[in-house]
Structures are given as C-alpha cells and as structure tokens.
Design a protein around this nucleic acid. Sequence first.
DNA 1: ACGTTGACTGGTC
DNA 2: TGACCAGCCAACG
Length: 108
Amino acid sequence: MSDFFNDIYDVVLLIPSGKVTSYGAIANYLGTKGSARIVGWAMNQVPKNSNIPAHRVVNRNGCLTGRHHFNPPEKMQQLLENEGIKISNHCIENFKTCFWDPSIELNL
DNA sequence: ACGTTGACTGGTC
DNA sequence: TGACCAGCCAACG
C-alpha cells in the first residue's frame, strides 16, 4: 500500500455527506494532477471493511463511472440520492452545486 | 524487467 | 459533438 493510496483514502473520508468530488480534484489536492487514474485504482483497491465513501467520488463529468464496482452497482446512485444529491442517467444533476474540492475546502 | 490496463483529465482533430 | 492522443502512477501477468 503506497502513501498515495493512504492520502487518497484520507481525502475521501473527509468528504462531507451530501458532497461529491472528482478523481482529478483529489489528485490535484495530493499534488499529482495527472495521477487521477491512480485515484481510480485506489478506489478499486479500497478495502470493503473500510468506511470509505467511494460513492462520493465521481469523474469530472459528475457521472458515476465507477458504479459497476459497487455491490450492487445501483447502490452508488442510491447512496448519493439518499444524501440529497440528484442523479439523472447515472450522472449528477447538481454536480457543480454539491461538488466538494479538497484543495479548496481544506484550504491547502 | 517490460508491456498492458485501469473507477481519469485535458487538449486537439 | 464525438473520437483520439498524450500524460500521469501503480498494479498485474
């Protein structure tokens, strides 16, 4: 487990309920802008027993691209809707509204 | 050690 | 508007 993953998990855990962020935002917060793919890998490698809200992490379009990695996949959208986030066609409607940028919110 | 893939992003065509 | 390329890092065969 690289420190990178640890940092990613830490940031994801800091995402407040009802908010979402993007892979690029996390990567940017960690200082590795081009490493957005690593964030996706981290989500894929996230332990099931962990309380990491991976459902709050979406791509830059606000689409639930990683929903297929959930169990069941529809659970991701369900969780987001449960937090007050509007989902349409597996994409966040008010993505810009509920977007949570760690590099800004954490005032880094 | 090397090549491929992956829940990405930004830019160009 | 949709498709493709390059960049980035880590894991896997």
